[in-house]
């Protein structure tokens, strides 16, 4: 659906985007991660046809954005960062304007589309308020409503949950997920849990280049503590336990840390059943047993810091 081929964007002597390539298919939600200034927004702006790439191509449905900007813009719903919207208009006027530009000719159809997004984004209570008087959360949702008004097959969202409270974030994620089935979605975010909850694929961009392009699961596997266990025992010599556990062929390493034994598996495989069985056979009494929680933050940190 979206094909990005060796995209470059140069500002003077700075390479903002330096050879980015990837593909997004229908049904995928691609999470764009990266430190500030990594080139996420610039890449998104080039896909939407707002910025002209220095070199490289963007194809949407096989059409080149540079050559066919208008038909491609019809297929894309884009929510820019910080929701720049005409503040002096009311929500209703603004959505009406977008609907006119998006080519809704039949008035009832237009009305239906506006009603639908107002319901979807819970904007009904502020429909007749001018946008500049709204809170950031509402503004953000107006920006989102505008992007999905024409039910586009391609959705590009630059930090869609930025500025929302936790409940609203959850809601927006739910909406995005519900729409994902027949769309290709690219979203950028700083919130790593969001990516994990929402995306089917993750791309990490740093210094204008793609450094990771894989599923959230395999990204998690990069964490050295993925599938590692922390076990506490009742009255046992931890050194002995450590030596014995090390003998297991599936175990890569064992460490003692703050009174707990940490067991690291080989090849990040799942070993909890195996280790439990082993403890029972040795009649070790376990007082606490857990999988060490792993977060994307650490992986992100290791990859980009």
């Amino acid at each position: 659906m979206i094909e990005v081929q060796s995209l470059h964007k140069r500002y003077g002597s700075i390479n903002a985007v330096n050879g980015v390539s990837f593909e997004v298919n229908r049904g995928e939600i691609l999470g764009f991660l990266g430190p500030n200034g990594a080139g996420k927004s610039t890449t998104m702006k080039m896909i939407t046809g707002f910025l002209r790439p220095t070199s490289g191509t963007v194809l949407v449905d096989g059409l080149d954005v540079q050559e066919h900007p208008v038909p491609i813009k019809e297929r894309i719903g884009y929510m820019p960062e910080n929701g720049p919207i005409y503040g002096e208009m009311t929500v209703e006027e603004f959505l009406d304007f977008i609907a006119d530009i998006r080519g809704f000719e039949d008035p009832t159809q237009k009305e239906d589309a506006i009603d639908r997004v107002c319901d979807l984004c819970r904007l009904n209570s502020v429909r007749h308020q001018s946008i500049e008087t709204l809170s950031k959360g509402y503004k953000q949702r107006v920006g989102f409503a505008q992007a999905v008004l024409h039910d586009p097959p391609v959705l590009i969202l630059d930090e869609p949950t930025d500025g929302l409270d936790p409940n609203q974030k959850k809601e927006v994620r739910k909406i995005i997920k519900a729409m994902a089935k027949d769309k290709a979605i690219i979203l950028s975010t700083h919130i790593l849990e969001e990516v994990r909850a929402l995306c089917t694929r993750i791309i990490i961009i740093a210094k204008g280049q793609v450094i990771v392009d894989e599923s959230p699961d395999s990204l998690m596997r990069r964490n050295k503590r993925y599938n590692a266990l922390a076990i506490q025992f009742e009255e046992l010599d931890l050194e002995v336990v450590k030596q014995d556990l090390k003998e297991l062929p599936e175990v890569a390493a064992v460490e003692i840390n703050e009174g707990a034994v940490e067991v690291y598996p080989k090849n990040k495989q799942s070993i909890e059943a195996l280790v439990l069985k082993f403890c029972r056979e040795n009649q070790w009494h376990i007082s606490h047993f857990e999988m060490i929680p792993v977060s994307l933050d650490e992986v992100f940190w290791e990859l980009t810091a």
């Binding site: 702006k45 939407t48 046809g49 208008v70 894309i76 884009y78 820019p80 720049p84 977008i98 530009i101």
Partner: peptide, 14 residues
């Protein structure tokens, strides 16, 4: 200045 041209120029208009 307000950034709305980004919205405007990503709508299907020449």
């Amino acid at each position: 200045r307000s950034g709305t041209w980004e919205l405007l120029l990503t709508l299907p208009v020449r």
